[in-house]
Design a protein around this nucleic acid. Sequence first.
DNA 1: TTTGATTGCACAACCGATGATGCATCGTCA
DNA 2: TGACGATGCATCATCGGTTGTGCAATCAAA
Lengths: 342, 342
Amino acid sequence: MEPKRKTTIYDVASASGVSASTVGAVLNGSWAKRRISKDLAERVHAVATSLGYRQNRQASALRTQRSGLIGMILPLHDNRYFSSLSQAFEAEARKRDLCPMVVSTLRDPDMEKRTVATLLSHNVDLLFIAGATDPDPLSRMCADAGIPHINVDLPGSLAASVVTDNYFGARELTRHLLIRVGNPAPATLHFIGGIPTDFNTMERVRGFRDVLIAETGAPPQPDQIDTCGYGPDEAERSVRELLDHLGALPDGLFVNSTIAFEGVFRVLKELPDDAFRGLSVGCYDWDPFLSHLHFPVAMVRQDAKALIEKAFRVIDDNTFGISQMHLIKPELLLPTHSPEKT
Amino acid sequence: MEPKRKTTIYDVASASGVSASTVGAVLNGSWAKRRISKDLAERVHAVATSLGYRQNRQASALRTQRSGLIGMILPLHDNRYFSSLSQAFEAEARKRDLCPMVVSTLRDPDMEKRTVATLLSHNVDLLFIAGATDPDPLSRMCADAGIPHINVDLPGSLAASVVTDNYFGARELTRHLLIRVGNPAPATLHFIGGIPTDFNTMERVRGFRDVLIAETGAPPQPDQIDTCGYGPDEAERSVRELLDHLGALPDGLFVNSTIAFEGVFRVLKELPDDAFRGLSVGCYDWDPFLSHLHFPVAMVRQDAKALIEKAFRVIDDNTFGISQMHLIKPELLLPTHSPEKT
DNA sequence: TTTGATTGCACAACCGATGATGCATCGTCA
DNA sequence: TGACGATGCATCATCGGTTGTGCAATCAAA
């Protein structure tokens, strides 16, 4: 199998006895506009398919300055929320006949920059910056290259941003936790997980706090908020310390991600059943199996599809350059009937 | 902000008073080979960075026939196993200075072909075909285009394939289920989920069957194997019918995916605790929360990293053209100490 | 029959980077 | 001093489409 050269418009041209420009026009659909007869167009098409012609997008892109690529960077693939962003992103990209390039940057600002540079080098027509820890320098890079871009999931100040309304979601979840507890004013809820400097975490903490103030009359004590990081191990340690300190479980737990929840669960599963009586647990982010534990868990589910669709609508509206935050409401999933043993 | 044209090697050339080819050589690192003085190289570099030069990969690719892109198609992003394939794929791609393009094809043979055509059109240097329902036509397309490619997760007959040793995994899991049951010969295990024509499912069924024959002396009855499809709803229906038919749970369940497990669980969670006494449950595929249910679940975890690394090794060895199947062993995860209530 | 407008396609100049080739200049050695 | 190799860079064709322009041939109108 020799490295057969791919067939080009020139091959098609000489095989069908017309000029290359005519073939080009026929094959990219502009033939009518270029007053090429329908007859010829059909003949050329036939020859092209018989030769197995396939357009070379590099050549096309080089000339037209449009690659047909659309990029997105995100922290991780291996995560329910982010992978659902990818899936939604791809669906929308396909609708627009763009080829998606989704690359993860592992929450590393430097890798974010390098990755954006790479994507710009490949001349993506559009760039989605999802969950970037440091979006503004990336915005600047895109602006320099003249590439439309938009922030998703985490806002930036130099371009439009489409983010989950985490303040709303946190309020909903906190309110639910309080109600489950039975609403006696001095209930103590604890917030666990996330990074204190992360915008989303800050918004969630703000929602948590505001509801506590409104409903119990007092702000949470500093030790009620432990933004101990992402990762199950930190969360596990945090809950163990909490147990040690309180001598028992608090009235409720607001866990800031499914990953943190894993760590929390490692502790909870060791406890006897009666330790859970009246415990109110919520998780910000969704996992189907969390509704199947031996105690009820309320969850907040972010709407990846809506986020992506809104972002594309902002792109289509040509308002992506305006630094504005578009909020998408998440959904509060109440615990399904818990499998309390009879 | 006018659509500033991106700076090219020509801009750098005139700004630094040298020829474009020299700039090109400096900027792509071949300057030493082309006997350009270190002095000049440094000067040109300085000018280039001050002008914010960034290589146009389309132009480069057009000339060199190497795009620097590496493609992978897979069924879904939104899935633990596949997204971990993506993550591993990306890590390896980065090591080789290739830009990953991972596109999902939703288990649709037609979309698989269109997607591969798109990726070939973008001149990917390499293509990974992961979990394709119909890999051989895709192989042919790649061969026509002269693009090295490899099958992952599901084997094809026209190129090398790197797949999980599902026969091995299924045997391990089945054997474990039998042991948990207490090994009385006539234990009835039921296999649930997957598509009967899917190679991986077939391998798993084969392992299931062979262990049953070896350990109990008899092959499973036809009704012990219900390859009812992917998807929780089918699995749920399947288990309900099983319950109706048997009047109780069987001795053990071999559930063929976490997604099917969701459906199975919907049924199990409704049952009283004593219905689980002695029930032996396994899930082919891993999810952290499955080890946290109120009954023990054994899991098989496929090694995405090893699969991808092996695939890259085959590419590097230049043996990707040889139709050969490379098997990667999965890991059997025994249930952690189950949270049986005291 | 002449004029002018269409129709139908070919020509050729790009897009930006690459690399074979060519041509000075300089140093070295006989 | 002349021959020769080495050094350092410029020239130019090229990759494969795209698109403005040119130019016949055809057709309609005058």
